[in-house]
């Protein structure tokens, strides 16, 4: 059982700082080895988890949710009203999405998601977070200079557009519903999903491009 004693954990961190090897791969190998020898984890199960997040669980799920919302007004209404039930029907409810909210971009609103305190992210629908999402640069600046951050991503936001930054400070998670690009009336849900970038669902992309 944990002690919930921060002073004790600070002391442990000091020891780890002094005695563990510097190389990250060796550190993680040490942890895996000890947990395996203690009978707490199976290395083949670790392989399976890596494969699941490399191949199956990723932003394709989020893109399908977005495309479906573009095509089906009733689904979009349900998604904005109760995102948890809506994604549960698609089989995508899971890690870190039990309190999911969907925020909609409009011609006058742009949404941007960050976690300034750690790196909270809706894993079951977007997979692994990109590195930049977890960096000090993004976490520090997204709430203070969102327009500057977006410019670095190549996204220009006019001054008459309101930026709404969502700092994920509790267990709610946010998915941005980007605007459907013009001229996509005849496309299938699948073809539309292919236009939805991972970044557009975090808010660091806005105008989606039609690919040929």
């Amino acid at each position: 059982m944990p002690t919930f004693d921060p002073e004790k954990v600070s002391e442990i961190h000091q020891h780890l700082h002094s005695h563990l090897p510097s190389e990250s791969a060796l550190r993680v190998k040490a942890l895996e080895t000890v947990l395996v020898e203690k009978g707490l984890v199976n290395s083949q199960t670790i392989d399976a988890w890596v494969e699941a997040y490399s191949e199956e669980v990723g932003p394709k799920r989020g893109a399908l949710i977005v495309a479906k919302a573009w095509c089906e007004p009733a689904f979009k209404a349900a998604l904005l009203e109760d995102a948890v039930s809506a994604i549960d029907h698609l089989g995508y409810l899971g890690k870190a999405t039990a309190h999911l909210k969907v925020v909609e971009n409009t011609p006058l609103v742009h949404n941007l998601v960050v976690c300034t305190l750690c790196s909270c992210y809706p894993f079951s629908i977007l997979g692994m977070a990109p590195n930049w999402y977890k960096t000090a640069a993004y976490r520090s600046r997204a709430v203070r200079d969102p327009r500057g951050v977006l410019t670095e991503f190549g996204v220009k936001i006019d001054n008459d557009i309101e930026i709404r930054v969502w700092d994920s400070t509790a267990e709610l998670r946010y998915l941005v519903l980007p605007e459907r690009p013009a001229g996509t009336g005849g496309l299938s849900e699948e073809a539309l999903a292919a236009l939805v970038s991972r970044n557009s669902m975090i808010g660091t992309d806005r105008v989606l491009e039609i690919k040929n």
Binding site: S24, V28, L31, T45, I46, W49, V50, G58
Partner: peptide
């Protein structure tokens, strides 16, 4: 998803340990 093998293994340990 992962930039090195050890990143994936650490993520996985976190999920199933």
């Amino acid at each position: 998803p992962f930039h090195a093998d050890w990143e994936g293994r650490m993520w996985a340990i976190a999920q199933c340990g």
